[in-house]
């Protein structure tokens, strides 16, 4: 009983710390000075690290969707709707979620490791001792960069996925080229794009927040960094999926 109480207490305290961390970062975003140079650097960091993997997974996701949905839709005799089925799956769901998971694995882990190393090599202490706020230098640029980059990467994922689906549908399954795109134009609404956008914006906040938090609170020792990195990736991925369900059920 006492153990349970202690565990609950420490869990609550940790949760409190995570949210205080975010609140602190958000406060710093809106209080000058803002470090534009660092923001550009982190945008490049997310972009460079993730671009190849987004192109790769995006195209294959579109291709797999084409195969699967073609099979299903033909059973209902509505295979003309293959284009919009692929596009809607990507834009509303798979684009934001899969691209966020990919960026987490690629850039998020690197981010945690980088900040974790700064923690254990006392670089964060050095900033603090210089009377400079490490949150402003290390956390704020990453959160803002992620909020900008995640939607862009999701859009690229969607686009390349739609073209991947097109390649399979038209070249492989013999669908007519005109039908594929014209049906997409008919059925994809602004609302769908908005939902995808909300999702990837919030995923950007979640991933950068969790990965920065884990790196910032790395325990000393080399295994501290690897533990922080693993925890950051696992926790971010879980939260992405939970939040995806939540926001999906609210915005449907």
């Amino acid at each position: 009983m006492r153990i349970l109480g202690a565990w609950t207490l420490s869990a609550v305290r940790r949760l409190g710390n995570i949210f205080t961390f975010l609140a602190n970062a958000v406060y710093s975003i809106f209080s000058p000075p803002f470090k534009f140079g660092l923001l550009l650097r982190q945008i490049r960091f997310f972009g460079n690290k993730s671009m190849v993997i987004i192109l790769l997974t995006g195209s294959f996701t579109g291709m797999v969707l084409a195969l699967q949905l073609f099979y299903t839709l033909r059973k209902f005799g509505s295979d003309a709707l293959l284009g919009p089925a692929i596009a809607l799956s990507l834009i509303r769901e798979l684009g934001p979620v899969l691209s966020a998971l990919m960026v987490t694995g690629r850039a998020g882990s690197a981010l945690t490791a980088e900040i974790g190393i700064m923690r254990i090599s006392e670089q964060i202490d050095a900033l603090t001792a210089m009377a400079l706020n490490p949150v402003r230098y290390l956390i704020v640029p990453n959160i803002v960069a992620a909020v900008i980059v995640f939607p862009l990467l999701a859009a690229i994922f969607d686009l390349i996925g739609i073209y991947g689906g097109y390649a399979v549908a038209v070249k492989l399954l013999g669908m007519s080229e005109g039908t594929y795109f014209s049906q997409i134009e008919t059925f994809v609404e602004m609302k769908d794009i908005r939902i995808g956008l909300y999702k990837s914006l919030s995923f950007g906040v979640i991933v950068s927040w969790i990965c920065c938090y884990k790196g910032f609170n790395t325990r000393y020792g080399a295994e501290g960094v690897s533990k922080a990195t693993t925890e950051a990736v696992v926790l971010s991925s879980i939260l992405i999926l939970i939040w995806d369900y939540f926001i999906g059920s609210v915005l449907l």
Binding site: I117, M118, S121, E122, Q123, D125, A126, A129, M130, A131, L132
Partner: peptide
């Protein structure tokens, strides 16, 4: 204050010049 940390705690992403300039430039 000026602080020299045990391992140096230099900023990895900055050059030697930028490291030395950093506190002055920022403060």
């Amino acid at each position: 204050f000026g602080v020299v940390f045990q391992g140096g705690a230099l900023f990895d992403s900055l050059t030697v010049y930028e490291n030395v300039a950093f506190p002055l430039k920022e403060k």
